[in-house]
């Protein structure tokens, strides 16, 4: 009897570990607006897992794969600001709250967890929306990143060209695993 309960529990706990979603396609964009120059970049090299039952979410972005309008911007971004040789990835690990997997349509959620950029990890709490549809899940979020908080220094000769606070947009589409 004990054995059966035990096995049952193992099975339950496995099921309870949840409905998982893996990344299908993703887009990360950031924008820096200054009077001198607008800079934007896009990255599609994103990996992510989302556990809809537990609300756990994790993603990682390869820094070198941000595409810029100018080759020189990319070089500076990697070499001077994000130091992608040293810190090749940016990651997030946390929880989504405020949604129900049964609900149709867009749902307002919050993502709470640890965001790592440039080797610096910060606790963040950002808003976003998610939508479950046909075995897929679409997550969208817009938030801001202050470069100072992640120890990203702007050389004095360049500072006017780069905003101190960067707008980040995430657009992730997940498929059920």
């Amino acid at each position: 009897m004990k054995k059966i309960i035990f096995i049952g529990l193992v099975v339950i706990s496995t099921i309870a570990s949840g409905q998982k979603y893996g990344i299908e396609k993703a887009k990360v964009m950031f924008f820096s607006k200054t009077p001198v120059e607008d800079i934007d970049a896009t990255n599609t090299t994103v990996n992510s897992l989302f556990n809809a039952t537990a609300g756990d979410i994790a993603f990682s972005i390869v820094i070198k794969d941000f595409a810029f309008k100018k080759a020189l911007m990319k070089e500076h971004f990697n070499e001077k600001y994000l130091e992608s040789d040293k810190y090749p990835k940016s990651t997030f690990q946390g929880k989504l709250t405020g949604y129900s997997t049964d609900k149709a349509g867009k749902q307002e959620v919050r993502a709470v967890g640890k965001l790592t950029i440039h080797g610096v990890t910060r606790d963040v709490d950002v808003p976003g929306t998610i939508e479950f549809k046909d075995g897929k899940m679409v997550a969208v979020s817009k938030f801001q990143v202050a470069l100072k908080e992640y120890d990203i220094k702007i050389p004095q000769l360049l500072w006017k060209k780069i905003a101190e606070v960067i707008d980040v947009n995430l657009d992730f589409t997940y498929k059920s695993l």
Partner: peptide
């Protein structure tokens, strides 16, 4: 489960990269 869920997810993700 509570303690390791998040870390496991990260690890699982990185393993599959």
């Amino acid at each position: 489960t509570a303690v390791f869920a998040q870390d496991d997810l990260m690890k699982e993700m990185l393993d599959n990269e």
